[in-house]
């Protein structure tokens, strides 16, 4: 399954370009003309050439669009970095300092901006950035239909969904797949026998819902309840306790406390859809955080993704654990 087979939603095209400050918008406008819809990442680092990454490769940004040649590349200067920080924070670093402490910002439209530079620490903890000198803008892509090739394997005979773990290396399309899966669960997919579900989304990094000031920017359907910018362990507990979900979805389990919260949700009888970094099942089994989840058979399906034929290439769907 490569992205080319799938239909991007109509709201994608201009959203990331309009969020940039005027000078960068002018500079990247020709890039948008040539490869805009398929841009996945834009790297803007002070003193370095600006780079865009698409599903098919990386290019330098030149005044006329994209180029292979480093000599043609436009270098990001200090004022460009300041302008971008102003635009990303809406000139309000203090209002987003908690997100910055985690190393990223979420923009309207759900685009995520990773930050690099000189971190500011206090008693060993990161409290923010003293100087931001680099950005990695990850474009939020709603790919409707991304989960359809998987639904047959994930839908239970009773119209529910098997608890599923999606794994891939970074950039492998986990988040895009989960986002579409939430939408499918929330609306239901009668074609695949999937009934509509109440879905609780623990969106710690704001990437699934693309939440901006608490409001999802992505279409997650009418039955999705989202708690964003909240540690997964708290969000999962809050959702199970308060919102009565039939399925809970969360992205990138990595911390032992996340795994414990996931097991608590299993104990509450809720189906799970989660993702984690990893390129194979063997990888997963080596990770101490995930091993208990596999050993306790929290999941009945494991989906392995890769970038082999573009992000979201389905390598394997493995049945795991008991099927109640």
């Amino acid at each position: 399954m490569a992205n080319a087979e799938l239909l991007p939603t109509p709201k994608q095209p201009t959203s990331w370009l309009t969020l940039l400050p005027p000078r960068l918008r002018r500079l990247l406008s020709p890039v948008w003309q040539s490869v805009g819809g398929s841009v996945e990442e834009i790297r803007i680092v002070q003193g370095q050439p600006i780079i865009v990454r698409t599903a098919t490769g990386e290019w330098f940004v030149a005044p006329w669009g994209v180029a292979d040649d480093l000599a043609a590349a436009v270098t990001a200067d200090e004022s460009m970095i300041h302008e971008l920080l102003d635009a990303a924070t809406r000139s309000s670093v203090y209002a987003v300092q908690d997100a910055m402490r985690a190393g990223y910002l979420t923009l309207p439209g759900g685009h995520r901006v990773g930050l690099a530079g000189e971190a500011q620490t206090q008693e060993g903890d990161v409290v923010g950035f003293r100087h931001v000198t680099g950005f990695n803008i990850r474009i939020n892509r709603e790919v409707r239909g991304a989960c359809r090739p998987l639904l047959k394997a994930l839908v239970r005979p009773d119209g529910g969904i098997w608890s599923t773990l999606v794994i891939s290396p970074p950039g492998g399309g986990k988040t895009t797949l989960l986002r579409d899966l939430i939408r499918a669960l929330s609306y239901g997919e009668p074609e695949f026998g999937l009934k509509p579900h109440r879905v609780g989304v623990a969106d710690e990094r704001g990437e699934l819902a693309g939440g901006y000031r608490g409001l999802p920017q992505n279409d997650l359907g009418p039955r999705a309840d989202v708690i964003d910018q909240c540690p997964k362990r708290h969000a999962l507990a809050m959702l199970v306790r308060a919102m009565g979900p039939e399925v809970v979805v969360t992205d990138e389990i990595g911390h032992p406390l996340d795994a414990a919260a996931v097991l608590d949700a299993v104990a509450a009888g809720v189906a799970l859809v989660c993702s984690a970094h990893g390129s194979s099942l063997a990888d997963l089994k080596k990770r101490p955080t995930l091993r208990p989840l596999l050993e306790q058979e929290a999941f009945q399906r494991v989906v392995v993704l890769s970038r082999r034929r573009g992000p979201g290439t389905i390598e394997r769907v493995v049945s795991w654990g008991p099927e109640p």
């Binding site: 920080l85 102003d86 000139s91 670093v93 203090y94 500011q120 409290v127 923010g128």
Partner: peptide, 10 residues
């Protein structure tokens, strides 16, 4: 300087 640093600095 306004808007460019955390709250205590502001």
């Amino acid at each position: 300087v306004l808007g460019r640093s955390p709250a205590d600095d502001q």
